[in-house]
Structures are given as C-alpha cells and as structure tokens.
Design a protein around this nucleic acid. Structure first.
Lengths: 131, 131
DNA sequence: CAGCATCCTAATAGATACTG
DNA sequence: CAGTATCTATTAGGATGCTG
C-alpha cells in the first residue's frame, strides 16, 4: 500500500476542467442506489431487472430504471435484451464497472470501521447543541 | 449462499441495518461539496471559513456553512473559534477526516484514469439513442 | 469575518397507472 | 417482464439581506 502522507491525489496535478469532471463523476457514481446496484451485480454476476430490484431493498422501479440507465450510459453496465416473450433483460458489470467496485473498497471499509464513531460524533454534536 | 469472491467488502457480513447505515454514510460523505472541502483541508491543513470558500470554487456561502456543519457533526472536521474581533474561525480535519481522504484515494484515482472512457461511453450511448 | 434567516426556484424521489 | 408516463411531495440550492 502506498502511504501518501498528504494528498489523496496520487497523480499529477490536473486541469480545473478535469478536476471538476472528476468530482462530478464521483458525485454521480457514489450515489446511494448506484452503490447498491453495483454491489448486487458484483455479488451475483448477472441479473435481470426484477432480480436487481429484489436485491436492492427499498428501491423504487423508477429509480432502478434511472440508475441502470445512467450506469449503462457511463459504461458501467452492459444491458442485454433477449428477444423473447415475456421480455428478458439482463445486466452485468463491465470491466470499468468492476474496477469501480474495487476502487470503492477503501471507502466501503472506511464506512464500516467508522460508522459507530460517526453515530457517536453525531450524538455528541446534537446534545452539545441542545443541552 | 453469499460468497463474495471478489468482494469490495473485505469485512464479514453485516446486518441489514448496518449495511443501510454504511451506505447512507457513503452517500452523505461522497457529496460533491464535501469532497472538495475535504480536498482543500487535506491540502492546506487548516483554513478559515472564507479561505475554504476561495479554495472551493463555485460554492455558495450557504452550502459552505451547511457542508462544514455536517462534516463537523459527523466528526470529520474540528471547528475552532478564536474569540477575537473580527471573528476568526478555523477548520481542520480530524483523524477520521484524514482517513476518509485516504480511503477515497482509490475512487479518486479510478475517476482520474477513467474519466475519458466515461465521456466516450456517454457519447456512444447518446448517439446510439439519437441516431 | 462568519455566519443565520428568508424567499424562491429547480431538481429529485416516491407512488400510481398504463403498455409492448 | 421490463419498462414508460404522469403527478405530487420533498429537498437542494442559489440569491439576498441582516447581525454580533
């Protein structure tokens, strides 16, 4: 593992436009539903529309469609339509989709190890404000 | 039945509640402005309110306040008020804040190496839909 | 300087109904 | 089954004005 004592930017400095693009991409991709869909596809390999909906608890069909469409547009998933009746559409991650899941390991691990501390910090903050 | 062969979850399986909490935390923390503020503080160490606003180009004062307040509540930043006139308030990352920046290295790197591919994928998707 | 309060608009998300 | 379309409720966010 690299230990950059500074900078979570291991690479060289980038132009402001790229910087903004990169930040926007992260903001888009770090969306709650995208994360959960990514996780489901990472775990099961290939899933149909309804199956993803079952895996991602609480997602509305609208958000599922929207999320999948966005991920497809960004090149994170492949959408395969089987021309049968009833329709069968399967989704799987692209290489880039998989690499995103891998890249998120760090953040996922961070949230898992720190969620209790965060909840505690929130409680402290709230009582400090209230009391 | 679930065996994450490549798992972006290095840790053991967690309860659904924790899973949801963790996902919510990521969604919160991966917010565009939070990321940029994190970056600014990571780079400069300690900054005043207005200085952060200058670093984070395009942020409104309302969103800056809101973002900093949220980060403070979550235990990511320390807010130090110097009782002088005019007021001087300084912000710096906590240990947990720093570790978040470090955890994001992977995602940041992913976005930097893949942003061109994403833009290309979007273009392909859009022309496929239009043409 | 570092904010809070207020108003207002635009983007989002959910629920529901319908279709090839 | 895998969506689309539509309506509504909530939220996010910007602009502006004021204050210790």
């Amino acid at each position: 593992m690299t230990q950059p004592d500074r900078a979570h930017h291991p690479e060289e400095p980038v132009s402001p436009e790229v910087e903004r693009l990169v930040t926007d991409i992260i903001g888009r991709v770090a969306d709650k539903w995208t994360l959960l869909v990514l996780e489901a596809l990472e775990e099961h390999g290939e899933l149909r529309f309804t199956a993803i909906g079952r895996e991602v608890e609480g997602i509305s069909q609208k958000m599922l469609t929207q999320t999948l469409r966005q991920m497809e547009r960004d090149g994170l998933v492949i959408r395969t339509v089987h021309p049968v009746i009833p329709p069968k559409v399967e989704y799987r991650l692209t290489e880039m989709g998989h690499s995103l899941g891998y890249a998120f390991c760090g953040v996922w691990g961070w949230a898992q190890t720190n969620h209790a501390a965060i909840v505690a910090a929130r409680a402290r903050f709230d009582t400090r404000k209230a009391g």
